[in-house]
């Protein structure tokens, strides 16, 4: 007779099972590590940001009024948030004005018009542009866009200015806007295009009135993602937006001004030498927290739109 209780043990070699479990745990802990990174980011930002608010409330005469003083001069205890937020918005708006037409135009062309051969030649151009480091764009904005383009149009342009920074950042985000919105248009089902052609619509009519609206939420998501990248972009702004120490609120984009990321970069490079107040150093983290929250909201919004778009098709 067979000993059934023994022969039915199909659970396998215990050594093999143990190894499987260990490997799985190893991979799981690597994945969980990414959550620790997020926690570390949030904790380090929030801790110092709260310390910043406490120390300006305690040590500066105006108290929290320093957050809406005249201009952003951290070494002189003036932390006007309106100044740096407005300058960041100005740079981002200019960047979107550059990247939206060029990025979307490129996306529509690549998705709807380009033949396979043309696509194979032109698509890598955007990929190469995406691989250019942002310091390089900063130099280009400072040494080419400002003197050779902007000065020829408006001769009052300052050496460092928000306009050149905006154009430089815009060039940086063209590939992002274009590739995300091209993906959105590619995801529009062929049936819609064929129905449109079947009714006698021309190519441009089909692209603009059928494909573009159908892909709209994906395209908007691409633009939001681009805006989020523009707000967080640092090196172009640090090189060409100007005002290393601090700045007053500038309404004219042809003048230099301090942005959120620019303020962080200049605080960072001065943080070990210049004897500013403790608050100056801590303000770095406060601005960082603001930046983190702004980009987080934009990224989540963009993610939502993409998901809704995917569900529809």
């Amino acid at each position: 007779m067979l000993d059934t209780s023994a022969s039915l043990d199909l659970s396998g070699d215990p050594r093999r099972l143990r190894r499987e479990r260990n490997v799985r745990w190893l991979f799981l802990s690597a994945a969980v590590f990414t959550i620790l990174v997020s926690i570390a980011i949030v904790l380090s930002l929030v801790g110092e940001a709260v310390a910043f608010l406490q120390s300006i409330a305690a040590e500066i005469d105006e108290g929290l009024g320093a957050l809406i003083a005249d201009g952003w001069f951290p070494r002189r205890d003036r932390f006007d948030l309106r100044t740096i937020i407005w300058h960041t918005l100005a740079v981002s708006i200019i960047a979107m004005a550059v990247a939206t037409p060029l990025g979307l135009g490129a996306a529509v062309y690549l998705s709807e018009y380009a033949k396979a051969g043309v696509r194979r030649v032109l698509k890598p151009v955007l990929e190469i542009l995406a691989g250019i480091p942002s310091v390089v764009l900063g130099y280009f904005a400072l040494r080419f866009i400002t003197p050779d383009i902007l000065r020829n149009i408006w001769d009052t342009t300052q050496q460092s200015n928000l306009m050149a920074a905006g154009i430089g950042v815009g060039i940086l985000i063209i590939p992002l806007v274009s590739s995300v919105s091209e993906d959105a248009m590619q995801a529009v089902p062929r049936d819609l295009r064929e129905a449109s052609y079947g009714l006698g619509a021309k190519k441009w009519h089909t692209s603009m009135r059928v494909v573009f609206p159908a892909a709209l939420s994906g395209i908007v998501a691409a633009l939001i993602l681009g805006l989020s990248r523009a707000i967080g972009e640092t090196m172009v702004v640090a090189i060409v937006a100007g005002a290393t120490g601090g700045s007053l609120l500038q309404l004219n984009p042809l003048n230099g001004g301090q942005t959120m990321t620019g303020a962080m970069a200049s605080l960072a490079i001065g943080s070990d030498q210049v004897a500013g107040g403790v608050a100056a150093f801590q303000s770095l983290f406060f601005v960082g927290l603001l930046l983190f929250l702004m980009t987080l909201v934009l990224n989540i919004g963009s993610e939502r739109l993409v998901r809704r778009f995917r569900q529809r098709y």
């Binding site: 990414t34 993602l225 707000i231 640092t234 960072a268 930046l291 983190f292 980009t295 934009l298």
Partner: peptide
């Protein structure tokens, strides 16, 4: 985990600098 990794990919690079500085 998935949502967290997507958000991490969107955090501006200079914010990672703050993480590096403080941690």
């Amino acid at each position: 985990l998935v949502a967290n990794i997507r958000n991490l990919a969107g955090v501006p690079s200079i914010v990672y600098g703050l993480l590096g500085l403080s941690v």
